[in-house]
């Protein structure tokens, strides 16, 4: 569920951009060259899955799988808009087909299965297609004897698919349960933001859990918590550093070091 505050999340078009964290005016090309990270304060901007892929796997090694799976509208869901129309509008916009892409990739000499969320597609919410792609990713990984890396960025389950979305939590967790009966690693990377049913299923089930600096990670979104307890939340609450301190994740890794750390982990697991 998309619970957290809505912020302008995309690095805006144009030559210059303003860092949402330190307010510095930055030359966009330079930020892009710096992997979408502020040159002054190390703020990690939210980035799309294709962009990220380039920082993680070797150039040209990614082979997308299951891209032919498309969402449908099992409930005939309608709020102020029909879910069908929302999907159509997204398709027209030329946006991604879904909130998750997955496939095979290579990091130097290690072959992996990799999946990445697209937060710009309905808040990276998990519906039937996302759940199915994740389950297939783990099943293929078993067949091909590879490790799995998933980069999460999601508001949680997709409300518009109702109970089917909720069941994707069970489905993905079961796929991981099966996967973990084999000796291949699953590395879960949490990026800003990762909340709701995604956190409460496959994202927190990594053998290794990594987060990007300052990423918002939680079960409930901060607004829901504030409304429930009627108090302001402490500074830094639900941020990656907070989770590390409370023993919920293994480490925080800067975007520029991510590929290297992933490679070292995979190499050690490979033996």
């Amino acid at each position: 569920m998309v619970w957290f505050r809505k912020k302008k999340v995309k690095v805006p078009e144009g030559l210059w951009i303003k860092c949402e964290s330190c307010g510095e005016i930055l030359y966009k090309k330079e930020v892009d060259r710096n992997m979408g990270v502020c040159l002054r304060c190390n703020h990690h901007f939210r980035i799309g899955p294709r962009e990220r892929l380039a920082f993680v796997v070797d150039e040209g090694s990614f082979e997308e799988l299951d891209h032919h799976l498309e969402p449908t509208d099992p409930l005939g869901f309608k709020d102020v808009k029909r879910y069908k129309d929302r999907l159509k509008a997204l398709k027209k916009k030329g946006a991604s087909k879904e909130a998750f892409i997955s496939g095979r990739g290579r990091i130097r000499d290690v072959e992996v299965m990799i999946g990445l969320f697209d937060f710009s597609f309905m808040g990276g919410s998990m519906g039937s297609v996302v759940g199915e792609k994740i389950a297939r990713l783990f099943e293929r990984a078993i067949e091909e004897k590879r490790g799995v890396i998933i980069f999460s960025a999601s508001g949680g389950a997709r409300m518009q698919e109702g109970i089917f979305s909720l069941m994707q939590m069970a489905k993905t967790a079961a796929a991981i349960g099966e996967f973990k009966r084999h000796p291949y690693p699953y590395i879960s990377v949490l990026t800003d933001p990762t909340t709701g049913g995604v956190t409460a299923s496959f994202a927190m089930l990594g053998d290794i859990i990594i987060a990007e600096p300052k990423a918002l990670i939680g079960f409930a979104g901060p607004r829901v918590i504030e409304q429930t307890i009627k108090q302001q939340l402490p500074e830094g609450f639900q941020r990656a550093e907070y989770l590390l301190e409370h023993g919920m994740i293994d480490m925080i890794v800067n975007r520029k070091d991510m590929k290297d750390v992933l490679y070292r982990l995979l190499s050690i697991f490979r033996r």
């Binding site: 799976l69 498309e70 199915e132």
Partner: peptide, 12 residues
């Protein structure tokens, strides 16, 4: 649980 979910497979 594996079979729960509805989507369109435009490929196969």
């Amino acid at each position: 649980y594996r079979s729960m979910g509805r989507f369109i497979d435009t490929h196969g």
